[in-house]
């Protein structure tokens, strides 16, 4: 079976990561910020999987499983916070919540 070259996989991961970062930086809706964060997490997961396929090693896949659990936990907490935020401020725009400045 013809294997995908490692460079392709890494480039895809890099592109995904950059997209996610741009989303985090530019989005004002906090739900989309959270989703962009998920994209970034999956990008790093993809890099692990690609690397483990290249070296024929299971460690990368173990790492991806851990990232998956972590992401699930993070989303649970994050969504909870978003619900609280919406209840309190009636908005999901993060730039409105800029009271804590120095």
């Amino acid at each position: 079976m013809q294997s995908i070259p490692i460079e392709h996989g890494l480039i895809l991961a890099g592109v995904l990561f950059a997209l996610g970062l741009v989303g985090v930086l530019t989005r004002r809706n906090i739900v989309f910020v959270l989703m962009s964060l998920e994209v970034m997490l999956n990008a790093s997961g993809l890099a692990f999987v690609v690397a483990s396929a290249r070296w024929g090693h299971a460690d990368g896949q173990v790492m991806f499983l851990m990232i998956l659990t972590l992401a699930a936990a993070e989303v649970a907490v994050g969504l909870g916070l978003i619900i609280q935020m919406y209840r309190k401020f009636k908005t999901v725009d993060i730039d409105v919540l800029s009271e804590m400045k120095g």
């Binding site: 970062l21 985090v24 930086l25 530019t26 989005r27 004002r28 910020v33 993060i94 730039d95 919540l97 800029s98 009271e99 804590m100 400045k101 120095g102």
Partner: peptide, 18 residues
């Protein structure tokens, strides 16, 4: 001066971290 960087905007913090 440092206090001025603390804007309260989440995007700004993320950008400076990145």
């Amino acid at each position: 001066m440092l206090a001025r960087t603390q804007t309260g905007y989440l995007g700004w913090y993320a950008l400076s971290m990145a």
